[in-house]
């Protein structure tokens, strides 16, 4: 469903990778590995349509990615996109609404429960630790079961073991339901998947 053909990306005039072809089918997990600066984030941002490739193309359901693609894709980058001035649940409500997801209050609480931060729901995000902030951002996953493609950039960084287990369980459930996950990670976190592949980026 998601495929790239002869994809090449440059950053600041430097070629990061070229001639990259990956294809991902329903239920597929793709791990992107590589050293710092090898282009993992750039690849994910290119798949999300944020960065323009230097050559090649990204296709979704056979079409070049466009407006319809953004309805079927969830991208979580390095920055948590959590506003200090808003409470944890307000943050989640806004990020879900902007992605056209269901935002009933009970669902918001369930999603926070799923990441183990429901007791922080009414706390302004400025009081959160780095890991709690990351959990608050990842709570979107629990609301995004209907979004087929998840693009997750370093989802496990700053998380403790318990949170890593919760997030990998969410990913496994998504894959089992026929979703697709692309993630970059330094750690080798086990995620149950019928079709798991990895690509190694060499900078």
């Amino acid at each position: 469903m998601l495929e790239t053909t002869a994809l090449a990306c440059e950053r600041g005039g430097m070629r990061l990778f070229s001639d990259l072809g990956v294809a991902l089918q329903a239920g597929g997990l793709l791990r992107v590995r590589g050293n710092n600066g090898s282009g993992k984030t750039t690849l994910l941002r290119t798949l999300a349509g944020l960065t323009r490739p230097a050559a090649g193309s990204v296709r979704w359901r056979g079409e070049p990615i466009g407006d319809d693609f953004r309805r079927e894709m969830l991208f979580l980058g390095h920055a948590a996109a959590v506003k200090d001035e808003m409470t944890v649940s307000e943050n989640l409500e806004f990020s879900s609404r902007i992605s056209c997801l269901d935002v009933a209050e009970s669902k918001i609480r369930d999603a926070l429960e799923c990441l183990g931060i429901v007791r922080l729901a009414d706390l302004p995000a400025r009081y959160l630790s780095q890991g709690q902030r990351k959990r608050a951002a990842l709570a979107r996953l629990a609301l995004s079961a209907s979004v087929p493609l998840w693009l997750l950039d370093e989802p496990f960084s700053a998380l403790d073991d318990e949170a890593i287990a919760r997030v990998s369980a969410l990913c496994a459930a998504h894959l089992a339901a026929g979703g697709m996950v692309v993630l970059t990670s330094h750690q080798d976190i086990p995620i149950a998947a019928a079709d798991a592949r990895a690509i190694e980026m060499r900078g």
Binding site: L50, R70, R71, M73, G77
Partner: peptide, 15 residues
């Protein structure tokens, strides 16, 4: 831009 919200707005389905 600094906290990543703008990035989320760009990848969201909203025009």
């Amino acid at each position: 831009h600094a906290d990543g919200t703008l990035e989320q707005m760009l990848v969201s389905p909203q025009p």
